[in-house]
Amino acid sequence: MALRLGEARSSASLRAVSAGTEASSSAQAVRSLKVDHGTAECREGNLALITAPDGTTYALNDRAEDAGYPDIDPLRVTGDSGDKVSLGSLLSRTMKLCPASG
């Protein structure tokens, strides 16, 4: 996983930067959003967030929403069935950036 220079260690670019599973997983995560790239991160308290290209940071989980970050819904893609495309893959990858509690 690639980290952007100058960012906290808990941030990872969603742009596919390597070959194989990581790249296809990144592409899948981006396809669930209306933006072509962003930065996913986990902040203290297990706040799962994504920062869009315009600089707006959105909540990926309830903890982040409870902390005051706006809901990710405006960035979510609607699938063929009319339902929003799942963010499960993106949230799972983002939560892996969180430090293990214990």
Rank of each mutant, 00 (worst) to 15 (best):
V35Q: 06
G45F: 04
A16V: 12
A16I: 09
A29F: 00
S26R: 09
S32E: 06
A40K: 09
A27I: 14
A40F: 00
S18V: 15
E44N: 11
S26E: 11
L47A: 11
G45C: 11
C42L: 05
T21D: 08
S18W: 02
T39M: 11
C42S: 08
L33S: 04
D36P: 05
T39Q: 07
S25R: 12
L49T: 06
R31I: 05
S18F: 03
V35W: 02
D54Q: 08
V17K: 06
C42F: 01
A23Q: 14
E22P: 02
P53M: 10
P53T: 13
L47M: 12
A27V: 14
D54G: 07
N46D: 15
G20S: 13
L49Y: 00
G20D: 13
S25Y: 01
V17T: 12
A40M: 14
A16W: 03
V35C: 06
D36V: 08
A48E: 12
S24W: 04
A23K: 14
S32T: 12
T51Y: 00
L47F: 02
V30E: 09
S18T: 15
K34A: 14
S18K: 08
V30T: 14
G45K: 11
T21V: 09
A40Y: 00
S18P: 02
G20H: 11
D36F: 02
T39V: 14
V30D: 07
T51N: 05
V35L: 06
R31V: 06
T21E: 06
A52T: 10
S32N: 07
A19T: 15
A29Y: 01
G38V: 11
